[in-house]
Design a protein around this nucleic acid. Structure first.
Lengths: 192, 192
DNA sequence: CAGGTTATTGACTGAACACTCAAGAACTGA
DNA sequence: TCAGTTCTTGAGTGTTCAGTCAATAACCTG
């Protein structure tokens, strides 16, 4: 009774993510998106509605991928070290040094709709919570005396700066030093 | 023999900075700039050459202002604490939460000319050096055993993340915790 | 195989963009 | 006051943008 979609939604989503990740929201044109997805403008709009809708698809995909990459089986300081190490690794292994889709888009968010801005906020919050969870666990098992909120903030800040400075093309050595500095700070602040 | 400029170069520079700081490079239109400066397109182009040239004027102004704001008479850990505290204060007291012009522009820099990209890199490097100078001094006066490069990186990362998360609208409390976390880490790592 | 529904196509629209330029205005030095 | 130079003006240029739509193609059900 109907004609089915001629494209794979997953592949198209991956194409949208690739394009927006490289160029950001505003500087990604519809021609860019047709090239990245293989779909023509009409199909894109029929399937998604608007350019911002396409962007939110990319953001959702991105956050899912990050969530998967940063979830760890480890506990305690080892988990923290592993997570920050993963952030460095993800940042550096990307030859294009695209950094974090969400953080890259923050400066643009003032010109986007409420819905899109909220999607970006939610993505940022989720990454924050992801780190908090690891550190809360460290704190409870260590009967910490140090200010845990400070450590949480420091480690979140470390992760954020690694992603941002990664896009800025800074050396792997610097990014790794930020990660190492944060874990060293946690180690010193917490009784083992 | 000649007709003099009918505008104050300083005021126009301030207008360019205000506009680019709020909207970034790409999303600042020439009409935006004419409104911010009071000059018409022809005058802007006659005076500066191109939109990117105008942007570099704004970047230079911005870096100068930051340099002035972050230069401190203090020494040792007090200097570090003061500098990071100033970063928090500058970030939070801006009602528009514009963050850092240079960091905001990093994601856009791939689409800019080499000259502009280098200007942004130079601005970032200068801010990095500014923090390094404070910490090197801390290290030499304290006969540190800790890894100074790590601490430098951690504090630079803290400053970067404060600016970025400031633009993202995060609470003053979080930003201050990042600063406090970094100074606490320095205090713990260095013998006093 | 045929009717009905949906997907795809790609030329098209109006708006916004960065940038230009010919004309006129404003000032200085003589 | 006037000649000479530079500055200012703002309409205009060609391009690119996000988004649309009438026509056509593809598919499923009966």
């Amino acid at each position: 009774m109907v004609r089915p979609r001629g494209f794979d939604e997953d592949e198209v989503g991956e194409g949208l993510l690739a394009a927006f990740w490289r160029h950001g929201y505003a500087r990604t044109s519809i021609p860019n998106l047709t090239e990245a997805t293989g779909l023509l403008p009409g199909s894109l709009y029929a399937a998604f509605g608007s350019k911002e809708d396409m962007f939110r698809v990319a953001v959702d995909r991105y956050v899912s991928e990050i969530r998967a990459a940063l979830t760890s089986e480890l506990t305690g300081l080892a988990a923290l070290e592993h997570v920050l190490g993963t952030v460095v690794r993800l940042t550096v292994k990307d030859r294009e040094r695209r950094g974090c889709l969400v953080l890259n888009a923050i400066p643009e968010s003032t010109t986007l709709s409420d819905e899109t801005r909220q999607a970006l906020q939610a993505g940022l919050d989720e990454m924050h919570q992801l780190l908090r969870r690891h550190l809360r666990e460290v704190a409870t098992t260590a009967h910490a005396t140090a200010d845990i909120a400070q450590l949480e903030a420091l480690c979140f800040g470390a992760a954020v700066s690694i992603r941002v400075l990664g896009r800025a093309g800074q050396s792997r050595k610097l990014l790794q030093s930020i990660a190492d500095g944060a874990t060293a700070a946690a180690r010193r602040a917490l009784p083992t």
